[in-house]
Design a protein around this nucleic acid. Structure first.
Lengths: 210, 210
DNA sequence: TAGATTGTTAATCGATTAACAATC
DNA sequence: TAGATTGTTAATCGATTAACAATC
């Protein structure tokens, strides 16, 4: 259960399962077969069953899956049944967008502090939180059980800031800067959101339609 | 050349090639072998050569690849040597972050208009552009050769707005709402940026480290 | 020329799909 | 019981890696 190797392809689909199961719940659908779920998600029934069976046996022959139970199980697999304390480094528009995105809190991600280097911003209150100087970063992380650091700063600063985060003991980095971070400690998880990569992929697909 | 089927895995790597080649250019490195490039990117040399050969023969035996030429070729493959007119629907923090992200312009993506439904925001000037009411959306798209619509609005509005975009004739949608859009016209390309999916993947990896 | 490195074919590996016995 | 649908093994498909002749 959660022990064998899980491929990246499966991991990428997990949040989608969670989302679709949430929608089913909202629509008061209590059970669903792999066939029905796969159809909604654009997968095959086999794939749904294979994916889920990496983590356990959640279904029942002749019945399918209980939506509420499966939704809860996927949440547990994703670790969003736990609380994560996150800090945001860089309170530009992107950083502010993330501060104000209340849906994160519903999934256990609590923004516990904001940091910036800009003296004009430091001290301001944004989304109910004071913006602190990055000099306080290290101590704050150590004293407040911060799991995740979010880098919403330009790539030049991102590299050194990432290393400070690692030294300070964060477990994961959510990286919005347009670089692939090479960290000293490989046990720190980096999840990249490369917006310009995404836009270029869109451009590619526009230029190369069948 | 650009004719055979290109897998999603390859498409996902293309912007990374572009980025790494750009860095090489910045560092005044004029040529690079598949071996050296693969090492920097965390791929195999075979994979680099296979990937590039989907699109043409850009290298030279005994020499490797000319960085400037390859960089330009990848730009062409990605379609970022063309100009794309984009509009942003939803001028919250996320929308504003995108308006102000000047790097997009360097790659030919021009934000030509902003739209919102909020009367308090309509008429304001943001990043030098006036925020227009969504009622003007349809006409604007038709009259201004808009390629790409960016949806930075909540998922509930996103679905109907996506359909308006499609009806108005956009070619692609850059979707930041947390839904998979089911469009009436399948020839319209959708590129999703599901931020909460990304955060959940980070959470998964934190919970399930080896 | 000798050395380096490509483009490409063949081999391998892994992910997806199909099939079906087990069972609710 | 009959029907539905799972969990899982086997078959297939596709992507990655290895190998190497061609050639700069």
């Amino acid at each position: 259960m959660g022990r064998k190797y899980i491929s990246d392809a499966v991991i990428r689909r997990l949040p989608r399962y969670y989302r679709y199961l949430g929608e089913l719940l909202d629509n008061h659908i209590t059970r669903i077969s792999s066939g029905e779920l796969s159809q909604r998600m654009g997968l095959t029934a086999s794939q749904v069953r294979q994916d889920l069976n990496h983590f356990g046996e959640f279904g029942q022959q002749g019945y399918g899956y209980n939506v509420e139970l499966l939704h809860r199980e996927v949440a547990r697999i994703l670790g969003i049944d736990q609380i994560h304390n996150i800090i945001i480094i860089g309170v530009g528009h992107l950083g502010q967008a993330l501060v104000n995105y209340t849906n994160f809190e519903r999934r256990g991600f609590y923004v516990v502090a904001l940091f910036d280097i800009d003296e004009n911003i430091i001290g301001q209150t944004i989304g109910g939180k004071i913006v602190r100087p990055v000099e306080e970063l290290k101590d704050f992380i150590k004293e407040n059980a911060v799991d995740i650091g979010v880098l919403t700063i330009p790539k030049k600063e991102a590299v050194q800031m990432a290393n400070i985060l690692v030294e300070s003991g964060v477990k994961g980095i959510w990286n919005f800067a347009s670089v692939d971070l090479a960290l000293s400690d490989p046990s720190v998880i980096v999840e990249d959101v490369h917006l310009s990569d995404s836009l270029m992929r869109l451009s590619y697909k526009l230029s190369n339609q069948n």
